[in-house]
């Protein structure tokens, strides 16, 4: 577990997060495989989003380590990186539980902002871009092409010039995923991407995530919608009260009595959902 092999993209080891007297996450260890979809599930308040915020640099963990390994062997100690460097260098992209787009900018602009670091270098840190060198213009065209590609993938090409704040809720969710993908991530972290989507939209989302995985991006997922989790996950980590209670393939997790107990104890409806999606 501790020694990261190259097939493992993310290794979380003994992660602990304390807020004052509250222990939100306690010595959590798990690993995410490269090119796979790993899901993090658990009842409300289990500490999933806290783990997420530690991995994406929004919290500094109180203890433990988070290791990210690129395919080329690049190795990052996430808990020691500054937040924006985690996205820039370690190539972890994330979405948010409550959507965080740039509502006053167009859909296309949202995706252009995501390619900021590439474009900054191409524009010679603004100085070359200011005088309009051709190399910057071609880089900008490449960025527009990549954005167009992702707009097609999420079905928002005809909304490219509309303000992101004007999109429907489901469209905003997909745009946020497209924006994260435009950063060219090695690991994509999705915080409840199916929240508030209808059945058809959830199915489309599953398809999108599977196609992203097929292209080699690893995905770490927090999700309440069990139909999505059970359908697309390769590996599931179940948390409750800040500790890991189970881990394994969707089938193993589904049948685990501890998982059922945790869900039953916390929320009857969700436990039913877990069991139903199994049958």
């Amino acid at each position: 577990m501790s020694a990261a092999t190259n097939s493992q993209i993310l290794g979380v080891d003994q992660l602990t997060m304390r807020f004052g007297g509250i222990l939100a996450v306690q010595e959590l260890s798990f690993a995410a495989e490269r090119g796979k979809i790993t899901a993090l599930i658990g009842p409300n308040g289990a500490g999933k989003t806290t783990v997420f915020n530690c991995i994406t640099g929004f919290y500094k963990p109180s203890g433990g380590s988070i290791r990210l390994t690129h395919e080329n062997g690049g190795h990052f100690a996430i808990e020691r990186l500054k937040d924006f460097r985690i996205a820039k260098q370690a190539k972890i992209a994330r979405t948010f539980q409550n959507i965080r787009l740039f509502p006053g900018m167009t859909t296309l602009e949202n995706l252009m902002v995501a390619q900021h670091n590439m474009l900054m270098r191409a524009s010679g840190f603004t100085f070359l871009g200011l005088i309009g060198v051709p190399s910057y213009r071609s880089a900008e065209q490449d960025a527009i092409d990549l954005a167009t590609h992702w707009l097609k993938r999420v079905g928002l090409l005809d909304r490219a010039d509309d303000a992101a704040g004007n999109l429907a809720y489901g469209d905003q969710r997909r745009l946020e995923i497209a924006r994260a993908m435009c950063t060219g991530p090695a690991l994509l972290c999705l915080d409840e991407p199916a929240a508030g989507l209808n059945a058809r939209e959830s199915a489309a989302l599953s398809e999108l995530l599977l196609s992203i995985r097929a292209e080699g991006t690893s995905i770490l997922l927090i999700e309440h919608d069990m139909s999505v989790v059970m359908e697309i996950s390769d590996h599931i980590v179940v948390m409750d009260h800040g500790v890991k209670i189970a881990e394994g393939s969707p089938r193993e997790v589904r049948d685990d009595p501890k998982v059922i107990a945790a869900y039953l104890g916390a929320d009857e409806e969700e436990a039913m959902a877990v069991m139903e999606s199994g049958s």
């Binding site: 994406t56 640099g57 929004f58 937040d83 924006f84 460097r85 985690i86 996205a87 820039k88 992209a93 994330r94 948010f96 965080r100 787009l101 740039f102 509502p103 006053g104 900018m105 602009e109 252009m112 902002v113 995501a114 390619q115 900021h116 670091n117 474009l119 900054m120 524009s123 603004t126 871009g129 200011l130 924006r179 994260a180 950063t183």
Partner: peptide, 22 residues
């Protein structure tokens, strides 16, 4: 230019900016 778009993105949502590596 990217810097100007980053300024406007900063005005719109600073947290999202950091998540995008800005």
């Amino acid at each position: 230019l990217p810097i100007g778009r980053a300024w406007e993105a900063l005005r719109e949502d600073e947290v999202a900016c950091r998540a995008l590596g800005i």
